[in-house]
Design a protein around this nucleic acid. Structure first.
Lengths: 367, 367
DNA sequence: GCTGGCACTCGATTCTACCGAGTGCCAAGC
DNA sequence: GCTTGGCACTCGGTAGAATCGAGTGCCAGC
């Protein structure tokens, strides 16, 4: 595969001008526009000649003869690779981010949801927030609560403030006392260990208790893999504006509704070390007219979550990259500080029952 | 305000024919089409005369001269009021519903989300599921878990299987033992009482414990009002197909993202005893081109939740009403049986840790 | 190698003519 | 007196022709 860096500086400048113009106007860009752009000091005829070359090499296409050019996916890719630095947000945007992370508070789910709203607000694209998995978060508490004659609920509290639950259906009626015993045994076996690393509790002598402990342990193992498909999607209404074809909107929205697809898409892109997937670069055919920008949410060093933006391929990449990067980092810091101290409240927050009605009612991000 | 029943049978039949036709085709309906409809045994000229009257009375409008008629909101309203019975679902639909409620299982949140998916599937409109509030569900367990030096987490398990949590920021460092004591005291005060009716725990002698108990009690009171703005929205992609104006789609999607608005809209419609709100009947200007169908989710007699459908005013009301009614009822039964016995697993479900990976991966409904 | 000039292309826009679904009205008929 | 068939009229939608203009490719000259 040919190196993308094989463009001479003038071609690169022309390509950049086309991309920038097209991102703004969504109209094919003609040679005159390019010639008038800053940084281009040649005539339109020369630009035309270069454009022919760029088209031959696959960076541009003409929608039809006698129209301007628009970038191909390859063109966008080159453009994105060129801008080494992710760019910075404008001052207004920066302030929005700072203000957001100063004042945000409440339970983690709500914070993630509102983070998704922030991203939409910053970029006007649809946003996705993948919460960090908590395989590695130490267990703070395990509890088995009876709900009915043959039904119990396993409730696990993790050090990062997450609470997970799972129903357990029992083969037989189990007295409350036995469940208490189960809780005690599990608590001992799981306390301070990561969720994935809960050790066997060992036999207790009471077969009923052992049986329930086994069921609960299975449920806990299940929880570890379960939290992968949680995801917060926001701003899907922005997509309606981004695409003009109604059925494109419909199909993209439909995909955003399949959370599992979204999750694996983002993880996949992230795993390949990319921060942008343009057009068909991710495998999903139905999203071929979309670009995805991803940034990790690094919590205490290792990356555990992700934020993403979904928009048309003619996306404002510098802005989107900057927004995703900054928000991902800040979110990671926030979650990281929580991991250590369980801190999830804003600094200015009153020392009181957290997340009063005032804050909670301010949800903006859609799911 | 004139009674809507002031239409003679023939006018009513004509109006009905227009509505039915228009729902199907989205095209203005001419007098000839109506005259050919079943149940209309007069000539097109007569139909025309009647249509003039119907237009004068506000049930129909002409988009322009020499076009057919389309129903006004008032016309739809009459139509909806006429069909006394909500109608029944087709056999295929019925089967889908039955199959769904036979096989659905897992935690409540997931079930509600998938119910929302079911509604979309049945009607091809966007759907909303308002979970029942659990003010009245008895508390099964209360726990305060320390997360950091000055942060604790209140975890409440309710008899219906719901788990609620709230962070508590502490004024000072509280030893683990004190938190345990707090848990014990709260447990005693709250056990088996509804969440809203937790009594005062009374002084314990230890001021630190009392302080934390107070904070926790405040947090619990807060939880009661908190669960109002949870809502599951599904099938927003369907809206893109329902409206042809792109900005209508955009604004409606934007509204669906504001969960609080959706919740209060549905509650409002339900409180007014309506099952359908057409056009401007609900107060929300931006949804003037939409109709909302609502059905209660009655759990053990009193209505506590709701399911809703959001579509264009030219909605298939009989189908939507039937679907909402049936799904609302079935969901209520399901949740009701859970209230008593905590039963949330399908009858055919294996007695094992519930909601294995297989089931969990099958999410369809978008948020 | 760059530039201005020039002929050419082709989508978009405008204009016109026309079709036809649908209406309103009216006189004749049951 | 309601109903009906007939008829003139309206007007949005479609098709075709003419026009416009942004943009291209090519080429000769600087």
């Amino acid at each position: 595969m040919p190196e993308p860096q094989d463009l001479d500086p003038r071609k690169a400048a022309i390509l950049e001008a086309v991309v920038n113009e097209y991102i703004g106007t969504a109209q094919p860009v003609g040679s005159q526009h390019v010639a008038r752009s800053a940084g281009i000091n040649v005539s339109s005829a020369t630009v035309r000649a270069e454009m022919v070359a760029l088209e031959r090499e696959g960076y541009l296409v003409q929608p039809h003869t006698s129209a301007g050019r628009i970038p191909t996916d390859k063109g966008y890719r080159y453009f994105v690779d060129q801008l080494g630095e992710p760019g910075v947000l404008g001052p207004a945007q920066r302030q929005k981010v700072s203000r957001f992370f100063e004042q945000v508070h409440g339970e983690m789910e709500e914070m993630l949801e509102r983070t998704s709203g922030l991203l939409c607000d910053l970029t006007s694209y649809a946003s996705v927030v993948l919460p960090p998995g908590h395989e590695s978060a130490p267990v703070r508490s395990v509890q088995v609560v009876g709900l009915g004659p043959r039904l119990a609920l396993l409730v696990v509290v993790l050090a990062d403030g997450a609470v997970e639950k799972r129903s357990i259906e029992l083969d037989e009626e189990v007295p409350e006392a036995a469940l208490t015993q189960v809780t005690v045994r599990l608590q001992a076996a799981a306390q301070s260990r990561p969720l994935g690393g809960v050790l066997d509790a060992g036999p207790s002598g009471d077969p009923v208790v052992d049986r329930v402990v086994d069921l609960a342990a299975a449920a806990m193992a299940d929880l570890v893999s379960a939290d992968h498909d949680r995801v917060f999607v926001g701003g899907s209404s922005r997509l309606a504006a981004a695409f003009d074809a109604v059925d494109t909107v419909r199909s993209v929205l439909g995909i955003l509704e399949q959370q599992l697809v979204v999750v694996s898409l983002l993880r996949d892109v992230l795993e390949r070390g990319l921060s942008v997937a343009i057009g068909a670069e991710h495998g999903y055919e139905p999203l071929a007219s979309c670009a995805v920008v991803v940034a990790p949410v690094p919590v205490d060093g290792h990356e555990v979550g992700a934020v993403g933006l979904l928009g048309p391929t003619r996306m404002n990449y510098p802005q989107a990259l900057a927004a995703a990067k900054v928000v991902g980092e800040r979110l990671g810091q926030r979650l990281g500080s929580g991991e250590q101290a369980g801190q999830q409240l804003g600094p200015g927050e009153q020392a009181t029952a957290a997340g009063g009605a005032r804050g909670r009612r301010r949800r903006h991000a859609g799911r």
